[in-house]
Every structure is written in C-alpha cells, then in structure tokens.
Design a protein around this nucleic acid. Structure first.
Lengths: 212, 212
DNA sequence: GAAAGAAGAACGACCGGTCGTATTTATTTA
DNA sequence: TAAATAAATACGACCGGTCGTTCTTCTTTC
C-alpha cells in the first residue's frame, strides 16, 4: 500500500502472482514449485519474478502467507458471521469441509500438500505453518469456550479435548476425501460432529436444522 | 523369492536398499529422494541401483510397497495378537500412535509425508496409496464389526462411522503432533477414543485398564 | 583368459539466479 | 498539447550446479 491508502500497482501484481503460486503449489507441492513453470503460467518471464522477491525462498514464504490469508478469509470469516455457540462451531466445520471440497476436485489443496511436506522440517516455512496451526487451535478452543459460557455445552467440558476432536474430524475429512470416496467421507465428518455435539448439548433445538 | 522358497541373495539386498529408501524418504519426502543421496547412504554407486530397478520411478514404487509392508507389520500385526473386541480397537489405536511417535521425533514419517504429496495426483504411486488406504479402512471396519458381534458395542451402531471417527483421531494425532505439542496431541487422541467408546460400550470393565 | 559386476566419468535436461538490453511508463520542457 | 527525456520494468540469453540416466573402464572371480 502507498502512504495515502491507495493500492499500489506493484501490490496488485504481487497478489496476482501469489494467488497463482498458491494454486500451482496446490497441484505440485510447495517444493515442486518451479519458477519457470510459475512464470509460464503467468505469461511473464522468470527474471521478472526476481524484481518482486529476491529469491525463490522469499516467494515461497510469501506464498505460504497468502495461503494462510485465503484460509482465514474463506473459513474463519464466514463462520464469524454466524451467531456464536454450537451453531458457529458447526458453521466452521461446514466451511472447512466446503473449502476443501471445492478445491479437491479440480486439483489439490495447498495446506493438505504443504503442511505435510514441511512439518518437522525446521525452517522459516515450517515456522509460519506452525504459527498458523497454533492460531487455528486457539481459535477453535475459543469458540468451544464461548459455547460453554453461553450454557450450550456442559460447564465441566474438557475444552481443548473437544476442540481437538472437532479438528480431528476436519483433518481426516481432508485426508480421506482424496484417497477414498469424498461423499461418504464428508458425510461421516458431518455426522461425527453432530453425534458428538448431540451427546453434549442439553438443548436439542440447537442441532435440529441442517448445516447452514 | 526363489522357487524353492529360499530368499535369494538379490532379494536381501533389494530389501536392504528399500528399507534405507523408506527411511530416507521419511526424512526428505518421496519426491525429494535423490539417487545420489540414497547410494551414498548405502555405500554403493548410483549406477548400481539401476541393476535392480530400471528407473527411479520403479524404485519409488517399490519403496511405497515396502513402507506399506512395514506399516502392516508394525501396526496391524501387533493389534491382532490382542483379544478381539474394543480391546483390540484400542490396541490398534495405541500401536498407530506409537508407530508415529517413534518416528516423528528423529525425522518424519513416510506416510505423513508421502500420502499428502501424492493424493489427488494421478499415477501409480497414488494408486498404491489409495489401495492401501482402502485396505486399512476395511480392516478398521472389520474390527469394529467384530466388537459389535461380540456384544461389546451396540447392535445398531453405524459401523463405518465409528471406524471413521477412530481413524480421524489417529490421523489428526499424526498431523498435529508435528506442528504442535506431541504429548498433549497424543493424550487427546487417546482420551478422545476412550470417551467415544465409553459412551457406546455397555460393559465398563472393558475400558478400565490403560492402553496395553 | 574370459565373464560379470560394480565404479565412476560423461551426457542431456532442468533448476535457481544474473545480466545487458529493449520496451513501456512517467515526468519535464517547449 | 506535443515532443523529449528519465525511470522503471520486462525480457531472453546465459551461468553454475544438480538431477536421472547411460556408457566405458576396471576389478574380481572362476
């Protein structure tokens, strides 16, 4: 951004490049991303990329950041527009499934490919992903805690454990939907959360309607 | 194997190479595996590998097969030595967690790195992994069904759904243990399964003791 | 001495990265 | 307003290095 708030022309092209980089890395992996291929898809020359990022690693880092932003825009933001409580928990779950379902069919999904490439390998990329994972976990636990405070879930609930169980249903949905039948996978992921909440939630009317 | 059942000398060296390849791919990923590095670690020359496999791709495929075998020896086989029913389900879960925990700390884990590299990318590697995933799912459902038939779980249980939920707790344990704290992750994975079974199992004595 | 096997140099292809040049864009001058 | 100049950007060619793969050479063994 320029100092007066307008979006500089360079920033626009940067974002366009990064969006393409995310979608390319979604297909071939962040490691498999080659600058020649990226430049080809963008219709620019390879050396032009070095005008915006000093190295491939810098571009990869920016790509990760962009993917994190996309994730939060696509999953976190919509859920926050739903009333808090278990309804919001289910909306988040649904948004997550939808996010992956939408991208799994044409190609892959950035996080599904990237987190597993880089986890446990020290380095700046891993650090960013670990940071994003931590933010995500904290966010999930906050949502569960809010539902408890609203009285929609038992007061003596193990909040981190339920957050983990919810996350588990989402993660496995991502993974299994790409190896096995996506339809039954997503159905199981939805039903699993519904069962879990039904067992905990004293007010059944909160769970009667389908996913928002 | 030779026709009379003895293990041919060539097969022994092939297996040794593949074990090293699995452990190397566990660290750098199946894509990141380079023949020079593999030959180095084996103390042989790069061209020697071409005597056993006609191309790198053939060696990668054999590496995947070897990893699947290791998985089944390390996780499935021990669980089958435990009495069937919910005890066996918990033993399988525990074996899975232990398998990953043992390999996560030094480096990575083959499947955690590889399945996500290759899922949704068509090709022979993906096909093998999908096939192994299907076998695993079928196996899990068989174990759940056996517990139902023993009367340890309700007769009207949704078997595939519970199998999915169990698998979900394992998958997410693998994933999260590498980005976030492994100890709390594995604890959640164990407790999650215990809670789920406790809610279903009419006989509490089956769940009193700790993991085998 | 001949056959077999492994070792290592040599190959084409591709990678990330650099550089000199041409083309576009913006600013100044008449 | 139109022409001229300055600045920024994009481009294709090229470099060193690594990859998978092949081919030649040398050692070993019967």
């Amino acid at each position: 951004m320029t100092s007066d708030g307008r979006v500089a022309r360079g920033d626009r092209t940067r974002t366009a490049v990064l969006d393409t980089a995310v979608s390319l890395a979604t297909e071939v992996g962040l490691d498999g991303l080659s600058l020649a291929q990226l430049a080809d898809r963008l219709g620019v020359s390879k050396s032009g990329l070095f005008a915006h990022w000093r190295s491939k690693e810098a571009l990869q880092l920016a790509t990760v950041d962009r993917a994190v932003t996309q994730w939060e825009e696509r999953i976190v933001a919509p859920a926050l527009r739903v009333p808090r409580g278990v309804r919001r928990l289910r909306a988040l779950h649904e948004a997550r499934i939808g996010f992956y379902a939408a991208r799994v069919l044409p190609g892959g999904c950035f996080f599904a490919n990237t987190e597993f490439e880089y986890n446990a390998r020290p380095g700046p990329v891993r650090d960013r992903l670990a940071e994003a994972s931590g933010r995500w976990t904290t966010f999930l636990e906050r949502l569960v805690r809010e539902a408890v405070e609203l009285g929609e879930l038992p007061a003596d609930l193990d909040v981190p454990l339920l957050a983990y169980e919810i996350d588990a249903l989402g993660i496995s949905a991502v993974m299994r939907s790409r190896m096995l039948d996506p339809d039954v996978t997503y159905r199981h992921a939805r039903q699993g959360l519904l069962n879990r909440l039904r067992a905990l939630c004293p007010d059944p009317t909160l769970l009667t309607e389908g996913p928002s």
